[in-house]
Structures are given as C-alpha cells and as structure tokens.
C-alpha cells in the first residue's frame, strides 16, 4: 500500500520535472511544425490561404530559383561537412598526445573561432576577401594567383568563401567533441599497439575511428542539420540577395525571402521548409546506416 503510493509520487515528481520543458516544446516546436505541414498544402497570399492540394509541390518542381537554392545547399553540405569533420578529427588526434608542447595554447586557438558571432565573422571575412584585400595580396605575394580574385562577384569563388568561412567557424567546435571523447579512451590500448609496432595510421584507422564512431556520427548529424539550414553567413555576405546570380542562395535564405521579402506566400515557404525537414531526415538516416554497417569488422 505504502509502496504503491510512493511509486505514484515518484511518477508525479518525474512528470513535474519535465513538464515546463514539455509545455514549451509543445507550444513552440510541435504545434508550429504540425501547423507548417498543414500550411504547406495551402495556397494564396499573406494570410488569405485556401486548400491547394499538391499545388505547392508542383510549383516546387518548376521553380528554377528553388532548384538552384537546393543545389547550392547540397553543394555546401557535400563539400564542407567532410572537410570540416576530417580536419577536426586530425587536430583532435594531434592534440590528444600528452607529450605535445603548447597543447592548451593550440586547443584554445583552434577553438577560438566558435566564440565569434556569425555576423562578426561574416563581416571580418567580407573585409578580408575584398578584391584588393589582404587575402588576394597574400596569395599574390606568394605567387599562387597572378591577378586578384573577385571573390564576391564570381559565382564559383563566392561559394568557396562561404565554405572557407563555415569551416573556419565550426572546425574547433567539432574538435572539442572529439577531444573529450578521446580523453575517455584507455591510454594503455594505444601504448600496447605502439609497442607492438603498429604504425600510426593503423592506430588511427583501427583504434581511434571505431572508438570515436558514436561521436563522429553525432557531430556529422549536427553539422548536416546546421549546413542545410545555412542562413546567416550568406545573408550577410550578399546583403540578403544570395548573389551573385543566386550562386550562394540557400534554402533557408529562399524561405526567408519568400516569407518576408516578396509578396508573402506562407503556404509555399512552408513547403520549401519541409524540403529541408525531409532532407535532414533522409541524410541522418543514411548516416546512421553507414555508421552501423561499418561497425562490423571487415
């Protein structure tokens, strides 16, 4: 009797602790997401919406700007996420060596970019990559390029700057996750492998990578979500246009423009936002699959 009452009290206390979070998440996450799904089947301008069936989805397939934004977002994702993950892993492994000097200094330096706001670093990069700016001068001084590159007016180079900027900002962030995970790995395993003459690359491939797999998966998923939502950087590099010639227009920026800049069409922008939801779901699922498959030793 007393036990049952105690168990019930535990139940109530448990719900009490999570209730505030659940109420807020329900109100500001679950409700809007369901609403946005409903909205994506609505057509019309502003708040004058009517049911349009699959009209918005049809519009998607014919919307050249949308397809370009989709392509750009995908390009950023495919190129930037792997580069960043590999660099972060490399730095983390290098910094995990306890005999290394200036470890704290290196770690702090590489982590430092995460401290800056997206706006601050967009501004800094914009001024560094000016046509007569410091980057072009540096590259010309060491003869990598013969003439200055017009970073922000060339569709190709504009993408390159965006990728460089995001990589600069987020590599240290991912590195910290790996460092934390590496420090939990038992040192003696490495020591033993080293004594047995296992080369460094093999230690990395067969010891480090498998043990870090859960963290790598986690950071990859988080980075995928982040890159697919890319907005702040391109918005600030291009004063909101996604230029030149839509070459840096991302899906989020397009949604913003559809909602707040052009004649607002909430229904259609909700449809575009669901494209991101579905992409994130598919990519995360794929990443989980890959991570699971590789776990079996070959």
């Amino acid at each position: 009797m007393a036990d049952a009452r105690l168990a019930r009290r535990e139940q109530i206390t448990g719900w009490a602790f999570i209730a505030p979070a659940l109420v807020l998440l329900g109100l500001f996450m679950l409700y809007p997401i369901v609403w946005s799904l409903w909205m994506s089947f609505q057509v019309g301008r502003g708040m004058n919406l009517s049911f349009g069936g699959f009209g918005n989805i049809q519009r998607l397939t014919q919307d050249v700007v949308f397809l370009r934004a989709l392509g750009n977002t995908f390009t950023f994702f495919i190129i930037q996420v792997p580069i960043m993950i590999v660099l972060a892993l490399l730095f983390a492994v290098a910094l995990n060596d306890s005999t290394l000097r200036f470890r704290g200094l290196f770690r702090t330096a590489i982590f430092l970019p995460c401290v800056t706001s997206l706006i601050a670093y967009s501004t800094i990069f914009k001024s560094m990559f000016a046509t007569d700016g410091i980057i072009n001068q540096g590259l010309m001084a060491v003869n990598i390029i013969g003439a200055p590159i017009a970073w922000f007016s060339d569709p190709f180079w504009a993408k390159v700057v965006v990728i460089l900027a995001i990589t600069w900002r987020w590599t240290g962030y991912n590195m910290i996750f790996y460092l934390a995970a590496l420090q939990n790995i038992d040192r003696s395993i490495y020591e033993a492998a080293r004594i047995d003459g296992v080369p460094a690359w093999a230690r990395f491939r067969y010891l480090t990578i498998p043990m870090l797999k859960p963290v790598i998966l986690f950071t990859t998923v988080i980075s995928t979500i982040g890159t697919l939502q890319l907005f702040d950087e391109v918005f600030n590099f291009t004063a909101g246009t996604g230029g030149p010639a839509d070459s840096t227009l991302t899906l989020s920026l397009y949604i913003y423009n559809l909602t707040f800049k052009f004649m607002p069409s909430f229904g259609y922008s909700a449809t575009v936002s669901w494209v991101i939801v579905i992409l994130v779901a598919i990519l995360s699922f794929l990443q989980f699959l890959i991570a699971r498959d590789r776990r079996r030793p070959s």
Binding site: F28, P32, S36, L251, T259, I276, A281
Partner: peptide, 16 residues
C-alpha cells in the same frame, strides 16, 4: 524533433 530545422518553424512561429 532535434533534427527539425528552424526554417520549418519560423513561418508558423512568426504568425503565432
């Protein structure tokens, strides 16, 4: 829900 991008929420949130 963690993987729901903010872009998908912002329009309904703004209307709310």
């Amino acid at each position: 829900l963690l993987s729901i991008p903010f872009a998908a929420l912002m329009v309904p949130l703004f209307v709310m």
